[in-house]
Structures are given as structure tokens and as C-alpha cells.
């Protein structure tokens, strides 16, 4: 009922509509596109190194003869997966930590928020960069975990402050006076009533994670070869940007489009889920 109204509002919002269309197209490109390309991403064409876009190699080739089209789409798949997984983990973590801190208060609140404060003192980029040498040879999923573990703090603070006001709301008091235990109240009354915020935040976190991954990979602190992501491709391309711009422009352009479309959806969701906000 409510979700239908939300969806209707979302589709009526032009920003969100363009965002949704763009995202669907990008997803289709990433997952269906490779079937139409003439080359696999592992193929190396020893006849053409660093050749510009052509009928054969639609987006050109790299210095080792990889097809940029195939490699870029492969990288995009990885970026998308990373983005969604990180958003899921970090928003879930933020919801639990924030709601627990806000609802229980006292020492639980102090400990959890002190932890969040501590993690905020150093930019996550810096911490993950320092840890990254250990990840050489490890699964890229560890990288997802790292990104998630260092990106929940701000959301959890927002969740906490909203929980503080929800906690005093009368329907929560009613549940408490019924003798319902705290963790049940959090799961049954608090988190569902924060779902708007959490959905919006999870959306924004997807794009944040995609950028974060790319940023770390740009310096080689992220996804390690032989895996590719948009970040590793942009890093490789940026060094040759003046002579061989296609190496840089295709992955960078797709990254920007991906992030933009997700941000548009997130902003549209904010309007659709929170009719009170005038934006």
C-alpha cells in the first residue's frame, strides 16, 4: 500500500525517473553487453596494442591488447557488486549500532558512539590504504568488508539521533509499558519507522562505495589484479590520458554515469518517502 504510493511518487519525480532509466540501462550494459561484444575480457589481441576505437575494438585496446569494451564492462560488474554489498552491510550495521545506542542510552550509547567517533577521526581512505598491502592475494570480498566497516559511522549517528526522538514517541513508550524487551522494540518499532532514512541512505551508500572503491584502486590500494574494477581501469588509463584518452574516458564516463544515476534515485526517494521535505 505504502510502497505502491512511494513507487508512484518515485516514478512521477523526473529526477528519479531519469535516474532509474539510466541505472537500468547501465545494468543492462554491464551484464548483457558483454554477450554482444566480439571479445572476451580475458582475450588479448596481439595484433593491436593501444589502438583507438574501431569497428573491431569498439572502445579501443589497452597496451597489452585487451579489448577496452570487454574489460570495462567486466570492471563495471565488479564495481556494481561492490557498491551494493557495501551499502547493504554498512547501512545494516549503521541501523543496528545507531538504534541500539539511541534506544538503550547510558554506557551502551557512550561506548558505541565513542567507537564511531574514533573511526571518524581518520578518513576511511587512509585506514583502508594502510591495511591494503595485507589484501594482496586475498579475496576481493575482504575489500568489501573493509569498505563497509569504515562507512557506517555517519549514518549511525543520524539513526541514533532519530532513535532518541522515536524513543520518546508514545507508541514506543506504549510498547515499553507493555513489557516488551528492548531489542524487540528496536526491531519491531524503531527500525521500521526509520526505513525511509535507511533506504535513502543505503542508496547514497551504493554510490559512495563505488567511488570509494575506485578511489582506493586508483592508487592500487583496492582491487588487485587479475581482478579489474572501474577504479583499476581509470588508474591505468589516467597515466596515458593525453595520448590514449579512450583508456580513461570510457571507464571514467561509466563511473560518473553510474554514480549520477544512483544519486538521482536516492534524491527522488527522499522526496517520495518523505513528503514533508520540500526539495
Amino acid at each position: 500500500m505504502r510502497s505502491k504510493v512511494t513507487l508512484a511518487r518515485l516514478v512521477r519525480n523526473p529526477q528519479a525517473r531519469y535516474g532509474l532509466i539510466a541505472l537500468v540501462l547501465l545494468l543492462a550494459l554491464a551484464y548483457v553487453g558483454p554477450f554482444f561484444g566480439p571479445y572476451d575480457w580475458t582475450d588479448k589481441d596481439f595484433m593491436s596494442f593501444l589502438s583507438p576505437p574501431s569497428a573491431d575494438h569498439w572502445w579501443g585496446t589497452t597496451q597489452i591488447g585487451q579489448d577496452v569494451y570487454a574489460v570495462t564492462l567486466r570492471g563495471m560488474q565488479k564495481s556494481i557488486i561492490i557498491g551494493f554489498l557495501v551499502a547493504l552491510f554498512s547501512t545494516g550495521l549503521a541501523a543496528l549500532v545507531g538504534a541500539a545506542a539511541g534506544y538503550f542510552g547510558g554506557w551502551v550509547d557512550r561506548v558505541l558512539m565513542w567507537g564511531a567517533d574514533l573511526l571518524l577521526v581518520l578518513p576511511s581512505f587512509l585506514i583502508i590504504a594502510i591495511v591494503s598491502p595485507r589484501l594482496k592475494g586475498a579475496s576481493w570480498l575482504w575489500f568489501v568488508v573493509l569498505l563497509a566497516v569504515f562507512s557506517w559511522m555517519i549514518t549511525s549517528r543520524v539513526v541514533r539521533s532519530m532513535t532518541l526522538s522515536l524513543r520518546e514517541r508514545e507508541f514506543v513508550l506504549a510498547a515499553r509499558y507493555m513489557g516488551i524487551p528492548g531489542w524487540k522494540i528496536i526491531l519491531r518499532h524503531i527500525v521500521p519507522n526509520l526505513s525511509s532514512l535507511l533506504i535513502i541512505d543505503a542508496t547514497i551508500n551504493v554510490s559512495g562505495a563505488i567511488i570509494g572503491e575506485a578511489a582506493l584502486s586508483f592508487f592500487g590500494f583496492g582491487i588487485q589484479p587479475p581482478d579489474v574494477s572501474l577504479g583499476t581501469l581509470i588508474a591505468a588509463g589516467s597515466g596515458k590520458v593525453t595520448g590514449y584518452p579512450w583508456l580513461f574516458l570510457f571507464p571514467a564516463g561509466l563511473l560518473v554515469l553510474l554514480v549520477l544515476s544512483i544519486n538521482l534515485i536516492g534524491d527522488g526517494l527522499r522526496d517520495a518517502l518523505d513528503p514533508g521535505s520540500n526539495k
Binding site: 505504502r2 508514545e170 507508541f171 513508550l173 506504549a174 510498547a175 509499558y177 513489557g179 521500521p192
Partner: peptide, 23 residues
């Protein structure tokens, strides 16, 4: 005992909007 006592002691709140979980 406290939980048992809650059966016998109930509350009605001021703001009928806020007293019921909208979800």
C-alpha cells in the same frame, strides 16, 4: 512480577497520532 503487573496497569496517551505505530 513486574511484567505480570503490567497487565493490570495500562496507559492511554495524549497524542493519538503519536501513540500508534504508523507502520
Amino acid at each position: 512480577e513486574r511484567k505480570g503487573l503490567r497487565r493490570d496497569l495500562q496507559i492511554v496517551f495524549q497524542d493519538p497520532m503519536a501513540a500508534l505505530d504508523p507502520r
